[in-house]
């Protein structure tokens, strides 16, 4: 039984292996980009709006609202990054209902890649917001003694992000596999449905946590309210 789609090699050429993770990632990307392009190519700004456009507008507006709710002053600045995280993970998880499809998020390589992106994005957004000096000073707060702990927190939350998503998605796939061997009827279907739900929840948690990290690093003031918010979300995710 394949646990990770990384091991499923579809094509190999001169030592470069094209595994299922990358292929399914491309499939998800193609689905998202072609779908968006098909809809946004015929955008309407008048009173009558197509239902597909309404759907996209609702999704984009909801993501923006969520970003604003976490505390960002200008949601448009973070929208491409956070929105793409959410849409990619959600689509990758929801497409699991398609037979023969293996969600790329079930591969630790993919989740690590996403976590590394967040790891890099946090300082980049922070430096863009406050400058290099301002960003580096956050590691010395509240006292310089906290520097090692801040560094450990930075690393550990990246690892937590990666492992949380990987564990949840992979466990869903594994549980379905086990249940099929134990009880071939009915239960796998329920677990598939549950898997859809957890897939969406994981996408939401990943995107929101990324935004919380970026937001907490970008802000100098207004720390108290958002610190508790990030704590709540972390607990929910676990």
């Amino acid at each position: 039984m394949e646990i990770s789609p990384d091991a499923w090699v579809l094509y190999e050429w001169q030592g470069l292996r094209l595994n299922a993770t990358i292929v399914f990632t491309w499939a998800v990307m193609a689905f998202l980009v072609l779908g968006s392009w098909a809809i946004t190519a015929r955008l309407s700004e008048g009173e009558t709006v197509s239902r597909w456009q309404v759907m996209l507008e609702v999704i984009v507006a909801a993501i923006r609202d969520q970003i604003a709710e976490v505390g960002a002053d200008s949601p448009g600045r973070y929208l491409p990054f956070i929105g793409t995280l959410f849409l990619f993970i959600a689509t990758a998880n929801v497409l699991a209902v398609v037979p023969g499809y293996q969600p790329p998020t079930g591969s630790l390589s993919t989740t690590v890649a996403l976590a590394i992106c967040v790891l890099v994005a946090v300082p980049l957004f922070s430096i863009g917001e406050r400058g290099l000096g301002g960003y580096l000073r956050t590691y010395l707060q509240p006292t310089p003694l906290m520097l090692p702990f801040n560094l450990v927190a930075e690393a550990s939350r990246t690892i937590a992000l990666a492992v949380r998503l990987y564990g949840n998605v992979m466990s869903g796939t594994v549980i379905v596999g086990i249940l099929i061997s134990v009880a071939p009827f009915f239960f796998p279907v329920v677990m598939q449905v549950l898997g859809l739900l957890t897939g969406l929840i994981q996408a939401y948690i990943f995107a929101i946590l990324a935004m919380v990290y970026i937001g907490s690093a970008s802000r100098t003031r207004r720390r108290t309210g958002n610190a508790t918010a990030s704590q709540d979300i972390t607990e929910t995710g676990d």
């Binding site: 790329p104 390589s109 992106c117």
Partner: peptide, 12 residues
Amino acid sequence: DWLTVAAQIVNF
């Protein structure tokens, strides 16, 4: 698979 990780970062 770090090669896959790199590819996924580029993909993302």
